[in-house]
Every structure is written in structure tokens, then in C-alpha cells.
């Protein structure tokens, strides 16, 4: 499978990365090199093989569904580019 410039534009949009039109041919080329490389997997027969979900066989640890930590709104929002009253500030989303 190989990707064309239109697909690259769509993927960039999904990945939320701004890509200039002039960059599309280069990116398509680079992605195709990688996608061609992974094509080798088509040689492998995976009939009746389960996908690996955990590298070590263990039961998922469970705990009571209660709050055990938290309450640091200030510590969390201090890393933001813009915050006010312990809220993250973003450009206006609703007119």
C-alpha cells in the first residue's frame, strides 16, 4: 500500500499537525518508505494467531473504585501555556 498527497493531507489533519502543501511530496515519500518496509509482514501467516495484548501473563490488578489521589488543580495547570483560576485557557470555541 502506498499513500498519495491527498492521504498525507488527511493523516496530517487527523494527527493535528499543520503541513504546508509544499511539504506534501516529501512527506508522502518518507511515509511510503516506511510503509513499504512494513509490507514484509504480508509474508507471515497469522491465521489462528491471537494478537499479543500483554507480554507477561498476569491478571489485571483491581482496586476499589474510590478517589485515592488528586486535588492539585494548581500543580496541574501551572505547566499550561495559559491558565486562569486553575482552568486551562484556550481560544474561544463557541461563538
Amino acid at each position: 500500500m502506498s499513500v498519495d498527497e491527498k492521504t498525507v493531507r488527511r493523516v496530517a489533519r487527523l494527527a493535528r499537525i499543520k503541513v504546508a502543501d509544499s511539504e506534501l511530496p516529501r512527506l508522502a515519500g518518507e511515509l511510503n518508505v516506511i510503509l513499504n518496509f512494513v509490507e514484509q509482514l504480508n509474508e507471515v501467516n497469522v491465521d489462528n494467531v491471537m494478537p499479543l495484548t500483554s507480554v507477561v501473563e498476569v491478571d489485571m490488578r483491581l482496586r476499589a473504585d474510590v478517589v485515592t489521589d488528586g486535588g492539585y488543580a494548581k500543580a496541574v495547570t501551572q505547566s499550561a501555556a495559559a491558565s486562569e483560576d486553575d482552568f486551562f485557557m484556550v481560544p474561544k470555541v463557541v461563538e
Binding site: 509482514l41 507471515v44 497469522v46 491471537m50 494478537p51
Partner: peptide
């Protein structure tokens, strides 16, 4: 597919 190959 890749996760299946991982099992192998």
C-alpha cells in the same frame, strides 16, 4: 497484524 506477529 503486527500484534499477531508479536505473538509469534
Amino acid at each position: 497484524k503486527a500484534q499477531k506477529v508479536r505473538t509469534l
